[in-house]
C-alpha cells in the first residue's frame, strides 16, 4: 500500500504551520509538497512523500549507518563470487 517516494527539499514556502510547503525535487522533477507533518525538515533534507505530503524526514545518518553494513556484505559476496 502507500506509494511514498523520497525527494530533496529545495526551498521552503509559507509560515503558517498548516500551509508550510516546499518545492521537493525527485530526480529533476519538482513538485510543491505540504510539510505540515514534517515541521523539522530544512532545505537539503530528504523527505518521504505520499499524496502530496511529506510523511517522514529521512534520517541521513541512520541511513548511512545501516547502509554501510549492507554495502559491506554486498562487497563481501562480490569478492566471494570473484574467488
Amino acid at each position: 500500500m502507500c506509494l511514498a517516494v523520497p525527494g530533496r527539499v529545495v526551498d521552503l514556502t509559507g509560515d503558517d504551520p498548516a500551509f508550510r510547503s516546499a518545492n521537493v525535487d525527485f530526480c529533476g522533477i519538482r513538485k510543491s509538497i505540504n510539510l505540515a507533518f514534517t515541521p523539522e525538515a530544512v532545505v537539503g533534507d530528504y523527505v518521504l512523500v505520499h499524496v502530496g505530503f511529506a510523511i517522514s524526514r529521512i534520517d541521513a545518518s541512520e541511513a548511512h549507518r545501516t547502509f554501510a553494513y549492507l554495502k559491506s556484505i554486498g562487497a563481501l559476496s562480490e569478492e566471494g563470487y570473484a574467488a
Binding site: V5, F26, C27, G28, I29
Partner: peptide, 12 residues
C-alpha cells in the same frame, strides 16, 4: 531519463 524515472516513481 532520470527525470522521467522521477516522475514515474512519484506518480506510480
Amino acid at each position: 531519463r532520470d527525470q522521467v524515472r522521477g516522475a514515474c516513481e512519484l506518480l506510480g
